[in-house]
Design a protein around this nucleic acid. Structure first.
Lengths: 227, 227
DNA sequence: AACGTCAATTCTGTCGACAGATTTGAGCGT
DNA sequence: ACGCTCAAATCTGTCGACAGAATTGACGTT
């Protein structure tokens, strides 16, 4: 049951307990292993992961800072309950940030990076033709694309914000969104247009298209939530 | 010397040690009490604040999550060293986020809120005419304005991001920026134009003016850094 | 006088313990 | 059966302790 302190003591497994716990707890929250609104008891978690409460508490502080849990003094910590309002707010923020990333990507991309983007999208298109394991693929491919654009934008803080600090939260809110049939095709087509704008070094168009792309995802999310 | 655990035990002082430490450490970092790049030793801090290492560590994790310190495993934690590149990145992000806040403020402001904005700016203008304690006032007034616009925007996550999570980091980077003579007047005039755009419910203009306003601050910051 | 070595010191990562607050639930009255 | 009271169980906030790693600094060598 416990997977951290016992048995496996690889030499490469030098990561701090807090970091491992943070990752595992984040994942458990996003995938729903810890249900929204459920309480996270420190002693229970400590026993479950085979560690003491110290590292657990530090990991929880980071989860709190990232809005994955809410904490009331002396009442413990609860998994955040994602509301449609929160999702709307978050995607509105993401819209301008991803737009900014796309703009900078157009300004800064090297020829090699543009080639990389095109190669990646070609792979995505091919994967899309075979309908097996597509649900999983869409999420991965989508992340890959946004990840790459953010990296090419060359704003380290923006990258960390989109692909690190807020990424898990975005995932959590996107989770409740079952894939709409045809959305994958449409998303890929949007990705391809964005890449062409970046290849043209058209910063303004890149930003506009990326914003529309996120807005489109947001609309799907909201419709889903209110349905 | 110690100000947390000993002597003062007000009943209202029920805040958790971790929270108090987080605030005090944040302030100490922003004001330069802990120099950039200097190491934060846990036992030293614990002794200094009269608490044990547990709460100190939790506070440090939060500082780390907010990029106020950097931590290398088994080598301790150091105060972040603000580079001009970081400042540029941060203000670029802030530009689109504040622009978003201004746009939403124009969309959502009530008549009463617009009145509040005008009253506040009138107060700022009056304060500006007397030149005493102006340096302090500029920072406060500036924060008040951006705080209020973000609140009126009614995006809780955006508000938290601008006025909470990233606020201290922005302050840290703005700290090295000595007030340019005349900048206060210019900033106030820009604030007034933004408020008029919000009063007109002109979302697009509000966003544009707010972006320019931040960009103007950013330019001053960069020139300062490279001078 | 500069350099490398090795021991003393300090520090980090982690654990277990305790007091007071909070939640749970058993028992009682209606 | 239903709600209230109070005791048992649990949990949070905080502390102190220990092992192993990292840093410091003294010492001897060249």
């Amino acid at each position: 049951m416990s997977t951290l302190a016992d048995e496996n003591h690889d030499p490469a497994d030098d990561r701090l307990l807090t970091d491992q716990l943070f990752d595992q707890l984040s994942e458990a929250i996003v995938t729903g292993t810890f249900a929204p609104g459920s309480k996270l008891s420190e002693p229970r978690l400590a026993a479950q992961y085979g560690v003491s409460r110290g590292p657990i508490r530090e990991a929880i502080r980071r989860l709190e800072e990232r809005k994955l849990v809410t904490s009331a003094p002396r009442q413990g910590v609860r998994v955040v309950v994602p509301t449609p309002e929160d999702a709307l707010e978050l995607f509105t923020i993401r819209e301008v940030l991803e737009g900014l990333a796309a703009r900078h990507a157009a300004d800064n991309a090297t020829d090699a990076e543009i080639e990389d983007l095109r190669t990646m999208l070609a792979g995505h298109r091919q994967a899309l033709s075979k309908p097996d394991a597509m649900v999983y693929w869409q999420a991965t491919a989508n992340s890959d694309f946004h990840f790459m654009v953010a990296r090419i934008g060359r704003n380290q803080h923006l990258f960390n914000l989109l692909c690190g600090e807020y990424y898990t939260l975005f995932r959590l809110y996107r989770m409740r969104h079952r894939i709409v049939p045809g959305r994958a095709q449409r998303a890929l087509a949007e990705h391809e247009r964005i890449v062409e704008a970046i290849a043209d070094r058209d910063a303004e168009l890149s930003e506009l298209l990326m914003r529309r792309h996120i807005a489109s995802a947001r609309t799907g999310l909201i419709n889903q939530a209110t349905a």
